[in-house]
Design a protein around this nucleic acid. Structure first.
Length: 400
DNA sequence: GTCGTACCTAAAT
DNA sequence: TAGGTACGAC
């Protein structure tokens, strides 16, 4: 009797041990598979990471696998220092100069400004019209000056790469509301209410309804408005864009008006044709090179290459000539990976040495979606153009 | 001189 | 929400 119990216990233990060993073997196999796959597959080639089919236009992302570490260069949304860099390409424009044109409107700008006026009411759910009225007064101003607006709204979806930032903003908004309600300082309350206010689909719906009444066309972008606006501009559907987002130019928008002031009807126009004015001594400057500079310089909410800002990026792209930028970055990274002492090849600025040496300190980043090999695009057509083409048939809603 | 970080400010009526 | 700016590190 005793020995039977003992024997059962023994078999039970042995079964557990076997299961445990199988578990470990499986774990190691998967690990080895991933390691081998990652080593063989992307090595030496450029990969374009599509975070989502519809929005890759808005997320020009390139991941370079260099030796056993990854360098992730992701550009999107707002290079903070870009607009100052583009000052030589900027000129004043007034609404009078836009008579008879079609203008794409980055609706989120006016939605936020309008919400600012009645932040408390919106946060507390009190009835208010002033945000809609503000938006429509901007529209009426355009219509009055014989300018045809096409409104472009941000879509309901969040970019996967931006999800963390979006969640953080939501958290901060949630914190701001109780702050606003508890403080006795009216000034602080005001600040907190404006920090807590959110542009909800309900607000967008109200503005859309009001726009329909005026027979104003609108587009709801799948994700964010900037790529959709750029597309409309590239295809000649709009002659100007009113926005605050510097990415529009990166995506290929022809004419963008920043810091538009409703009261005076004036703003600062940056034209794609004038971009070269901000990049002197750059004989083969092109839109594609401009994009490369912006990709290299990175953005705020994702890790970019440490030590590379607009100036270093410009120096790098300028030195490139006809060479393929991704191949060159890969080469530089590979040199770094094999040699302790990195040597700057001929034709590259000395400052690159420092920048490239920081590669090894980069955090390993894994984009949240899978990798898709860079597809062969037709000559003269970039990945970004192709993606716009996919975006176009999305939702273009004619006012009825 | 360039870059990155942290902080400041403006938005409407 | 964004852009602008001051400051420290290299």
């Amino acid at each position: 009797m005793h020995s039977v119990v003992h024997s059962n216990k023994f078999t039970e233990n042995r079964r557990l041990i076997i299961i445990y060993i199988i578990y470990i073997i499986l774990y190691i196999s998967v690990y080895i598979f991933i390691a081998v796959h990652e080593y063989k597959e992307p090595f030496g080639s450029t990969y374009l990471c599509h975070h989502y089919p519809d929005i890759s236009c808005a997320l020009l992302s390139n991941t370079l696998h260099v030796m056993n570490f990854h360098v992730n260069i992701i550009h999107r949304m707002g290079i903070k220092t870009l607009l100052p860099v583009l000052a030589p390409s900027t000129q004043q424009i007034n609404i009078k100069d836009m008579k008879g044109t079609v203008v794409g409107i980055d609706a989120s700008c006016w939605l936020h400004k309008g919400a600012f006026a009645c932040a408390k009411e919106l946060v507390l759910g009190l009835p208010t019209d002033s945000h809609v009225n503000f938006f429509m007064s901007c529209i009426d101003c355009l219509l009055h000056n014989d300018v045809t607006p096409v409104l472009v709204f941000d879509g309901p979806r969040t970019l996967p790469a931006k999800a963390a930032v979006a969640a953080e903003r939501k958290r901060k908004r949630a914190l701001a509301k109780p702050n606003a309600q508890t403080t006795t300082d009216p000034l602080k309350a005001r600040t907190s209410y404006t920090a807590a206010v959110e542009i909800t689909p309900a607000i967008v719906d109200r503005v859309i309804e009001a726009s329909k009444e005026r027979e104003v066309d609108y587009v709801v972008a799948p994700y964010e408005a900037d790529a959709q606006l750029a597309f409309l501009s590239m295809n000649g559907a709009v002659q100007y864009i009113i926005s605050e987002d510097s990415d529009l130019l990166v995506f290929g928008a022809k004419q963008v008006i920043y810091k538009y002031d409703k009261a005076t009807g004036s703003g600062q126009l940056i034209t794609q044709n004038n971009l070269h004015l901000s990049f002197k001594d750059f004989p083969d400057f092109s839109l594609e090179k401009f994009r490369m500079i912006c990709i290299l310089a990175g953005c705020d909410y994702l890790k970019s290459i440490f030590g590379i800002g607009p100036n270093m990026a410009t120096a790098f792209v300028k030195a490139l000539g006809d060479r393929n930028i991704f191949q060159e970055i890969y080469n530089l990274g590979a040199i770094l990976g094999t040699e302790r002492q990195y040597k700057v090849p001929d034709g590259y600025p000395d400052g690159l040495k420092k920048a490239m040496n920081t590669f090894k300190h980069q955090t390993v980043l894994h984009p949240d979606e899978g990798y898709v090999p860079l597809r062969p695009y037709p000559p003269g057509v970039s990945a970004v153009d192709m993606d716009y083409a996919r975006l176009y048939p999305y939702q273009f809603c004619q006012a009825t």
